[in-house]
Amino acid sequence: MAAELSGSTALVTGGTSGIGRATAIALAGLGAHVVLSGRDATRGEQVVERIRAAGGKAGFVAADLKDAASARSLAARARELGGHVDVLVNNAGIFPTGPSADTTEAGFDRVYTTNVKVPFFLVAELAPEMARRGHGAIVNVSTLVAARGMAGMALYGSSKAAVELMTKAWAAEFGPSGVRVNAVSPGPTRTEGTAAFGDGLDELAAAGPAGRVAAPEEIAAAIAFLVGSGSSFVQGVVLPVDGGRLAV
């Protein structure tokens, strides 16, 4: 029996570590040819080798996603490696914290470019092609602070709130052509990127019903669900994967 995503190509941005790496491995395990992008070629090739060692198919594209042109270039490279892109996971992002008064204009622009502009133009480039083929799945990675006001999170949270609105708008735009667009909203998750938060991560997680920090693989499992046929009637949702943190 063929794996569920056999014959498809999945592009995972920020696929060299954390949630992105776990997602790339999960989708490859479902049979997808995974193209993962990131800035660190060494880590990227390590993920590719891990997937290939397990019998999967993968390729890495070194990409500094800093504008619309870099997004379009990544889409083109993914097509070269995979022939076409059936699944897009917009995972790459940055998450600075701190007082609004300390935010520089350059810092503001960097967050919105990485978290909003690049996903927008990747979808603008790839979703119409999916629509012409009559199928496709897009998953955007958000955060619980997009829906919960927290001090020091205005910049990051607002950028991801934009991603959640775009998710719903894209579902309306591309859903009638067979392209499903959804998002996941992770809670505190143990990754290389969140290590800097130290005990703060555990304190945030302790306030939720699960009472613990998530592993990247738990977020990746939710992304794989939204990509797969088991979610065929799921469109335009933001799925909390936060240990119940938004519930309390």
Rank of each mutant, 00 (worst) to 15 (best):
D64C: 07
A207V: 13
P186R: 08
D199T: 12
T23Q: 00
V118F: 04
G56D: 09
T9A: 06
G244Y: 13
I19Y: 03
R72D: 12
V85F: 01
S231H: 06
V238R: 05
A53H: 10
G83N: 07
G228Q: 05
A210M: 15
S73Q: 14
D40P: 08
K57N: 01
A71C: 08
G14R: 01
G7P: 05
A54R: 06
A131N: 09
M166S: 05
A224P: 03
F197I: 12
G136E: 05
A215W: 06
E45G: 08
K117A: 09
M150W: 15
G20K: 01
A28F: 08
S142L: 03
V116K: 12
H33E: 07
F120R: 15
A154W: 02
A28D: 04
S158C: 11
A210H: 07
A75K: 10
M153F: 14
V35P: 03
G149P: 09
A41Q: 14
K66G: 13
E203H: 09
G149F: 12
G157Y: 14
R79W: 04
V181D: 14
F60T: 02
E80V: 08
E192H: 12
L30Q: 15
P128V: 06
F197W: 13
G136S: 10
F108Q: 07
L201P: 08
N91Y: 06
L239E: 04
P96N: 02
G15I: 01
A131H: 11
A75I: 10
G211M: 09
G18Q: 02
F108R: 15
V139C: 15
V227L: 13
A162K: 04
G198F: 00
G82T: 05
A69D: 14
R132G: 05
L36N: 04
V116A: 09
A78P: 14
G20C: 04
F174N: 09
A22K: 09
G44S: 04
V85G: 05
G198P: 00
F233G: 08
A53W: 05
R52K: 13
A154Q: 09
G236A: 11
G38T: 00
G157L: 09
G56Y: 11
A247K: 11
L88F: 14
